[in-house]
């Protein structure tokens, strides 16, 4: 069983993003980037499934600029066996869109004969949460999104997946092959150890392009303008509980 994992390079979660001068997006230059946190969780889950002997090989895919290779190296250092970099100059947070990525992943699933795909539930830049469902649809495979627990069942022919929904926890059984997307509570990703960082250098990385995969990546939507959220106004102090209730009732109209 081969697992395909998607990893995306995004602006680091701790960076305070700024709107770029041309108002067409956030500033990407001189900003720290790292692996999308949900993708880290996907990698961790794949590595755990391999440690449980459920999988024999893990292949990580990253679509993006040259620097996406750094993200792939991180995945390799965490325990992935080899990487595939699909290079594109598109801005990964806006121009590289879920359908195009899903189509490329579908081609790679076919090429690699993967039996399971694990993706993050969303990337923290575009926040679309669409790639995994689109990929499942393109492949005609079952999907379990927002996974918070994964367990192989039926002699590794299916997965029992706990998923978090707005109304509570749901348990699904999906037959393999399948597509999973990972939620935050699925696991805590490991740190890449230093010896594994050194070993990652020697692991193979294949270089591809959207053209080679025969996928048109032209964006279907474009950003017209982007603006900072409005500044929050300072609060006020109230004199008494009565005044507070009055304001909640008559000004804020929340009571």
């Amino acid at each position: 069983m081969r697992i395909l994992v998607g990893v995306k390079r995004v602006i680091d979660y701790a960076v305070k993003v700024r709107v770029a001068a041309d108002k067409k997006g956030v500033e990407l230059n001189n900003v720290k980037h790292s692996m999308n946190p949900f993708c880290e969780i996907a990698v961790e889950e794949a590595v755990r499934l391999k440690e449980k002997k459920f999988a024999t090989e893990i292949v990580a895919v990253s679509v993006g600029t040259k620097q996406a290779q750094e993200t792939l190296r991180t995945a390799l250092a965490m325990g992935v066996d080899r990487g595939i970099h699909v290079e594109t100059a598109l801005r990964a947070d806006q121009e590289l869109q879920p359908l195009a990525v899903a189509k490329m992943l579908a081609k790679l699933v076919d090429k690699e004969k993967a039996g399971l795909v694990i993706l993050g539930k969303q990337s923290i830049d575009g926040d679309n949460a669409q790639t995994a469902p689109m990929l499942a649809a393109l492949l005609g495979w079952p999907q379990a999104t927002f996974a918070a627990g994964v367990e192989p069942v039926d002699e590794n022919k299916a997965l029992k997946v706990e998923r978090e929904t707005d109304t509570g926890s749901e348990v699904l059984k999906v037959n393999l092959p399948a597509v999973l997307s990972t939620d935050l509570r699925l696991n805590t990703p490991r740190y890449a150890t230093i010896p594994n960082i050194m070993k990652a250098k020697k692991k193979p990385m294949e270089l591809l392009s959207p053209e080679k995969l025969g996928v048109d990546v032209t964006p279907k939507t474009s950003v017209v303008s982007m603006a900072e959220p409005g500044k929050r106004k300072a609060g006020i102090m109230v004199e008494s509980v009565d005044e507070l209730l009055d304001k909640l009732k008559n000004e804020a109209k929340v009571l």
Binding site: E87, T88, A89, S209, V217, T218
Partner: peptide, 10 residues
């Protein structure tokens, strides 16, 4: 500049 949406690796 090259067309923004060219996916050719720059």
């Amino acid at each position: 500049p090259p067309h923004r949406f060219s996916s050719e690796p720059v």
